[in-house]
């Protein structure tokens, strides 16, 4: 099934205020195979800048695989073949001349399980910055403080920046990973179930953080928690068996979806 490229209207207020770019991410007819198994089927979708888009769908529907197409993380898995175009800010990220390292600087990622490096809190955030050429301590200090503030973690860790990141709680570790991802100022932040291993309080902090971060970043989040998608996203895309079934304003998806499959999934009747 081929979906026509969609971009639901209207744009949320923040994106409008900031004069965000329409169709910042454009995917057309994206298909992906793991060996002979086709995991994504002709997915076409357009995402605006400075919005939060949630990908939902049952396990194995391809939502995480599709998310990983945005920073070519699937390249790291052998036997994967991708067809179709993914344009970010007008640039085809699958073009042969694309520097993948540079791409991943533009498109940051946060994973389901927090994965801080076994280093100090400070070094975790400094790592990517050093890798990308920021060497001066004074510059690093400024960016690290800002990133930790933006990740709503600064107040909790400012007195122990030199202690191991592994001593932080799960929720704090996840926010540290977000700080690490945003330190290098990506344009897009991909989040693959960032709160699924956290308790309600830590989850709530991550959700509030996402709502703050969309002022500066374009966020795409995969979540199994429907209410989380309803709370934080502007748009929601529902995937099933490798296809994009429905993509619309989040409010519409959760109060009056157009497709029965979507309704059955969001109401918990299948999936």
């Amino acid at each position: 099934m081929t979906e026509t490229p969609l971009r639901p209207v209207p744009a949320p207020p923040i994106a409008e205020e900031k004069g965000a770019q329409k169709d910042f991410i454009q995917c057309s007819d994206v298909s992906l195979w793991y060996g002979k198994m086709q995991a994504l089927r002709d997915i076409s979708i357009k995402l605006d800048q400075n919005v939060v888009t949630a990908f939902i769908g049952p396990s194995g529907c391809g939502k995480s695989t599709f998310l990983r197409c945005f920073n070519r993380m699937n390249d790291l898995i052998g036997n994967v073949r991708v067809s179709g175009d993914v344009l970010i800010g007008g640039q085809n990220i699958y073009a042969p001349d694309v520097d993948v390292i540079e791409l991943r600087k533009r498109v940051g990622m946060v994973f389901q399980r927090s994965n801080p490096f076994p280093k100090s809190i400070y070094e975790n955030v400094a790592y990517g910055l050093r890798l990308h050429g920021t060497k001066k301590k004074s510059e690093l200090d400024v960016i690290i403080e800002k990133s930790l503030c933006n990740a709503a973690l600064w107040d909790e860790v400012k007195d122990r920046l030199e202690t191991s990141a592994l001593g932080l709680s799960g929720g704090q570790q996840q926010r540290l990973c977000i700080a690490r991802a945003i330190a290098i100022r990506p344009e897009i932040l991909l989040m693959d179930e960032p709160a699924s291993a956290l308790d309600p309080i830590a989850t709530s902090k991550i959700e509030e953080l996402i709502l703050q971060l969309k002022k500066d970043f374009t966020i795409v989040i995969v979540t199994h928690n429907m209410q989380q998608a309803a709370r934080i996203s502007d748009y929601t895309a529902f995937f099933y068996l490798g296809e994009l079934i429905e993509y619309d304003n989040t409010n519409k998806i959760f109060t009056n979806p157009a497709k029965k499959q979507t309704e059955d999934y969001v109401t918990g009747r299948f999936g």
Binding site: M226, Q227, A230, R231, N251, F254, T255
Partner: peptide, 8 residues
């Protein structure tokens, strides 16, 4: 209200 209720 409907919109807010969808956020559980």
């Amino acid at each position: 209200a409907i919109h807010l209720l969808s956020k559980a």
